[in-house]
Amino acid sequence: MIDGIRKVLDEKDSLREEALKITREIVRLSGDSIKALHRGEKELAQWRIKEVRKRVEELNEKLQLHPDLYFTGYVQNAHQEFVEAVLFYSYITGSEFPSPEELGVPEANYLLGIGDFIGELRRHFLLLLMDGRIEDARRVYETMSEVYEELMSLEYPKGLVNIRQKQDQARYIIERTLEDLTRAKLTKSLEEKLNNALKK
């Protein structure tokens, strides 16, 4: 009996190590694709996401018969990073947002990725503000608000999906973003008034 248990657990431990390696690659490639998008390198980002998709499919295949390994924190985190990268790529390129089924991830992990997506939109928003593109930044804020409202409409227990944490983070991000946008608009208005006064 012990020998049989040892054999099963040895195989599972080996599979777990393989899964950990794949999830690390998913996280790294997802992060690389997001960085590429912020630099305006859409083709590179697209290639990275294709590579991530392959890793996600490989992970799903390896853990298909092992739900005890599939529904773990490290797999969930990898899925979140993947969803965040794909949603951000879709937003930047004006593509339709893919569904959880199309990405091959559980619905709960997809929702958590949406929460991270809001944070990435804020970074994009700040980069636009730094470039003086206030109107473009405003449109990003509007998208953030729409996603936030949808996210806030979900009420589930933590045991099913820990969405409350993402909602709290999103609320804080939205509030800060609105403050930044308001401040930028006021500053621009004052600059315009000052310039007009100097011209006169």
Rank of each mutant, 00 (worst) to 15 (best):
Q167S: 11
E146Q: 09
R164W: 12
E149M: 06
H79P: 14
Q165E: 02
I173G: 09
F71I: 04
E96R: 14
E107N: 00
V75I: 07
F97M: 11
R53N: 01
L129Y: 13
Q80G: 02
H66F: 12
I173K: 07
S153R: 12
E107M: 07
P157E: 03
P157T: 00
A85C: 14
L121W: 08
E150F: 08
V147E: 03
I118Q: 02
G115D: 02
G115Q: 03
E84V: 11
R123W: 03
A85P: 15
G94H: 00
P98T: 00
P98V: 13
A170V: 06
A108H: 13
H124S: 07
Y156A: 05
M144T: 09
V56Y: 03
M130Q: 12
D116K: 02
V75L: 10
G113Q: 11
S95F: 09
G94A: 03
E57K: 11
L154W: 05
L103N: 05
E155L: 07
S90T: 08
L126F: 03
Q169M: 13
Y70A: 06
E149Q: 02
E81S: 09
I92Q: 14
S95R: 15
R164N: 09
F71V: 10
Y156E: 08
I118W: 01
V105G: 08
I118C: 13
P67L: 06
E81M: 09
G104E: 13
L127V: 05
A108M: 13
E61W: 09
N60M: 02
L65F: 06
F117K: 08
E61Y: 14
E61I: 04
H66S: 14
L127I: 01
L59P: 15
F125Y: 06
V140P: 07
P100L: 05
Q169I: 06
F97L: 12
Y91W: 15
G73F: 11
N109F: 13
L103E: 08
E149L: 02
R55A: 08
M144K: 07
H66V: 12
Y172K: 15
N162F: 06
G119W: 04
M152R: 15
L63P: 07
T143R: 14
S153A: 13
E120D: 02
E61P: 10
E149C: 00
Q169V: 15
A85R: 05
E150I: 00
V56T: 05
E149A: 03
E81D: 12
S145H: 07
Y156C: 06
D168M: 01
K54N: 01
V86T: 09
E135A: 02
E146R: 10
L127K: 04
P98M: 14
P67F: 03
E102C: 06
A137H: 01
A108D: 13
Y110W: 11
S95N: 10
E146K: 06
E146T: 10
P157S: 00
L87I: 03
Q167C: 13
L129I: 04
I92R: 13
Y91K: 12
Q76G: 13
L129E: 05
E61G: 01
K166H: 11
L111T: 04
E102R: 11
